[in-house]
């Protein structure tokens, strides 16, 4: 009963928020072959909001953010960013499939950090971070360098400008990857389990960088994570996914300390041991 009530409240809240939502998934479905991974997702993210996505392996967390980064195309439904449909273009009243030009324009608002860093190995650290500002934003080399150096200082790598990715530790690589994405000043940043490929002793430095960013900037963030303490510290809202559907969502304290659904309870119990 109480679950139904909460859902209603959330729905009401969503209706109220609809005009100002930065990112919105409306009845989004995603299928890989016969495997229906997302079964009609509805999710709205406010400007500046930090949302943690948690859930068991295969529940669709990565798929959700990859669709927003335009790495994966939804099977049906609409994703909007800043009110504009991402995968569709409005022609008059009709929605037609988006072309590359449309995707490129909307992508400027979205940044992503990957589990395996995906730095450009043939570029120095500095060039990794200046490449997009110069060639995508059209900044001059000096402006881009200044911004990049600023950003790299912020993540504690101001002394590695001329190094190559292969010369850095995993934690350092991931901090470069964060700088590379954030330097573009997107409106929403996507983090996909960015510490799960790291040695345990390097996790802390990366999470700290994200925490600092979350406090200092007004970017929205969607964080897929298995680090519950981190989710509690950073997120405004925690969303628990199960089998491609939102099973429960709310404030970190509610979700992590007072889980309602059995599935969430059993999911969380794995992290307490």
């Amino acid at each position: 009963m109480s679950l139904g009530l909460m859902e209603k409240q959330l729905n009401n809240q969503q209706v109220a928020d609809q005009e100002q939502a930065l990112v919105k998934y409306e009845n989004v479905k995603k299928q890989f072959g016969d495997n229906e991974v997302l079964k009609g997702l509805n999710l709205a993210i406010q400007p500046g909001e930090k949302v943690a996505l948690i859930g068991p392996s295969g529940s669709g967390k990565t798929t959700i953010i990859r669709m927003l980064m335009t790495l994966e195309k939804p099977t049906s439904g609409v994703i909007t960013i800043g009110g504009e449909p991402l995968w569709h273009k409005k022609v008059g009243e009709k929605l037609v499939p988006a072309d590359e030009k449309h995707l490129r324009r909307l992508r400027t608002d979205i940044g992503m950090v990957f589990q395996h860093f995906n730095l450009f190995p043939h570029m120095t650290i500095l060039r990794n971070v200046t490449e997009a500002p110069i060639h995508v934003l059209g900044l001059s080399k000096e402006e881009a360098t200044e911004r990049a150096v600023d950003m790299l200082n912020k993540v504690g790598l101001g002394d590695k400008l001329d190094a190559y990715p292969e010369q850095l530790s995993g934690g350092q690589k991931q901090r470069v990857a964060i700088a590379r994405a954030v330097v573009m000043r997107p409106k929403v940043m996507l983090f996909d389990e960015v510490t799960s490929a790291l040695d345990p002793e390097l996790v802390g430095e990366v999470l700290q960088v994200i925490k600092d960013l979350a406090e200092e900037t007004d970017m929205a963030m969607i964080l897929v994570t298995h680090e519950m303490d981190f989710a509690r510290d950073v997120a405004d809202r925690v969303v628990f996914l199960h089998n491609g559907q939102i099973e429960e969502q709310g404030k970190p304290s509610e979700i992590l300390e007072n889980p309602k659904s059995e599935r969430l309870q059993s999911f969380l119990s794995r992290f307490l041991a």
Binding site: T70, R107, G111, H116, E131, A132, V136, A181, M184
Partner: peptide, 19 residues
């Protein structure tokens, strides 16, 4: 991952190929 990072960085197709 290099293709995906290039897309996430919003590079053009030509830029992705040649750089």
């Amino acid at each position: 991952g290099q293709w995906e990072a290039s897309r996430a960085m919003n590079f053009t197709k030509i830029h992705t190929w040649f750089r």
